[in-house]
Amino acid sequence: MCTLKLGRYFALMFICFAIIHSIVLGCSYSIHPTLGCVLSNYVWVQYSTYFFYPVLFGFLPIIIASLFSILAYHNVRHIVRRQLPIVRRKLDKQITAMVLMRVIAYVCLVVPYNAYRIYAINYPTSRSVPMAYAVGRLLQAILLSINNINFIINFYVFTIFSSRFRRQVKFVLVKKCWQQWKYWCCSMNNQIEPDNDIEARNSQIESEENI
Rank of each mutant, 00 (worst) to 15 (best):
M1D: 12
K5I: 10
L6T: 14
G7M: 02
Y9F: 12
Y9P: 00
Y9A: 14
A11N: 02
A11M: 01
L12C: 08
I15E: 06
C16I: 03
C16V: 05
F17S: 11
A18M: 06
A18S: 12
I19H: 02
S22G: 04
I23L: 06
V24Q: 06
V24D: 04
L25T: 04
G26V: 00
S28M: 11
S30Y: 07
I31D: 14
I31K: 10
I31Y: 11
G36N: 01
C37D: 13
C37K: 14
N41K: 12
Y42S: 15
V43M: 10
W44M: 10
W44E: 01
V45A: 09
V45K: 15
Q46Y: 04
Y47N: 01
Y50I: 05
F52H: 12
Y53S: 02
V55C: 08
L56D: 04
G58S: 01
L60S: 04
I62A: 09
I63S: 12
I63F: 13
S69C: 04
S69F: 00
I70M: 00
I70F: 08
A72F: 02
V76Y: 10
R81P: 00
R82F: 03
R82D: 03
R82L: 09
Q83Y: 05
I86Q: 11
V87F: 06
R88W: 09
K90R: 06
D92A: 04
D92R: 05
Q94D: 03
A97T: 13
V99H: 08
V103S: 02
V107A: 09
V111K: 03
V111D: 01
V111F: 11
P112G: 00
Y113D: 07
N114V: 04
A115E: 09
A115T: 13
R117I: 09
R117L: 07
Y119T: 07
A120T: 05
I121N: 14
I121V: 11
I121C: 00
N122C: 12
Y123F: 13
V129I: 08
V129N: 15
V129Y: 10
P130C: 00
M131S: 14
Q140E: 15
Q140K: 08
L144K: 05
S145Q: 08
F151K: 04
I153M: 09
Y156L: 12
V157A: 04
T159P: 00
T159E: 06
I160A: 07
I160N: 07
S163Y: 08
R164M: 08
R166S: 01
R167H: 13
Q168G: 12
F171I: 03
L173H: 07
L173R: 14
C177H: 10
C177W: 11
Q179P: 09
W181A: 15
K182M: 11
Y183T: 14
Y183K: 13
C185G: 02
C185E: 13
C186F: 10
S187W: 12
M188N: 08
M188Y: 12
I192C: 07
E193I: 03
D195A: 02
D197L: 08
D197T: 06
E199S: 15
A200Y: 09
A200D: 14
R201N: 09
S203W: 06
Q204M: 14
I205L: 09
I205D: 03
I205W: 06
E206L: 14
E209M: 07
N210D: 15
N210R: 14
